[in-house]
Simulated scan of single mutants.
Amino acid sequence: MKEVVEIGRNPFAGPSLPDLMGEVARGDQQAFASVYDAVAGPVLGIVRRVLRDQAQSEEVAQEVLVEVWRTAARYRRDRGSVMNWVLTLAHQRAVDRVRSVEASAARETKAALLDRTPEFDEVTEQVEARLEREQVRRCLRTLTELQRESVTLAYYRGLTYREVAELLALPLGTVKTRLRDGLIRLRDCLGVTA
């Protein structure tokens, strides 16, 4: 039977934290009370550094200590000290709380912005869309036949430049040039600034 003595620890003071964690894993409430006494202060300290709010820090520290009780069997002595394991849990839980609070604030902000969005006027939208379509049709009529065909095939039928070139039996470079020139003329006709 090997006895592990922690540095700076009185060997007559009782079981070590790893030994106590083994007992906690078996449901020993007295062992948990000893672990609690040893880690509660550092847990609250690390959580408070992350959250900076006393009430939330106390709540998260309590959650961490409950998690230590519930998951004590997951502690592995060969992977590090009890204190590091518990403080890692505490830090993760505090960071999760920060993320949760930020996400909640973002949702509330988004909801507030949606509340201020003006009501949708369907008739106005339909009239504006019809006017825009008519303006686009008028501007398309100002293009050369090759420009109009190229733009229509590429942007209204969704063909690639290569497919447009094959369909029109033209070199790819010619189609690209006609598309570029046609789009420039459309932009100018529609009054869109570059």
Results as ranks from 00 to 15, higher is better:
A105N: 06
Q126W: 03
R77A: 04
T88G: 09
R99F: 03
E132G: 07
T117E: 14
A31H: 09
E128Y: 05
F120K: 05
E102S: 03
G158W: 12
E134P: 00
V82H: 12
C139E: 13
L87K: 04
T124E: 13
T160P: 08
R133V: 08
T88R: 11
G45V: 01
G27A: 11
H91K: 15
A105H: 06
E122C: 04
R116S: 11
A94P: 06
D78I: 10
D121T: 02
F120T: 09
Y75N: 06
L159P: 03
A72D: 09
R93S: 13
A94H: 03
E59T: 12
R148E: 02
G158Y: 12
Q56C: 06
H91I: 01
A154S: 13
H91E: 10
G158I: 12
R48I: 01
R141S: 03
L113H: 08
E145F: 00
Q62T: 10
Y36D: 03
R157M: 09
Y161W: 12
E63T: 04
D115H: 04
E108G: 05
N84M: 07
T160K: 14
E119M: 11
Q62V: 01
A38S: 14
Q92L: 12
A33C: 10
Q54D: 15
S104M: 00
T142K: 06
R70C: 13
S100E: 15
A25H: 10
E102F: 03
E59Q: 12
A111P: 02
S100A: 14
L159V: 08
Q30I: 14
P118T: 13
D37E: 15
Q92S: 09
W69D: 04
S34M: 08
A33Y: 05
A129L: 09
Y156L: 14
R52H: 15
V127N: 02
L65F: 01
V123F: 07
L114P: 05
Q92K: 15
G45Q: 05
S57H: 00
F120L: 12
V127F: 08
E125W: 13
P42K: 02
I46Y: 00
Q126Y: 05
L113P: 09
G158P: 10
L153H: 03
A106C: 09
G41P: 00
D28V: 11
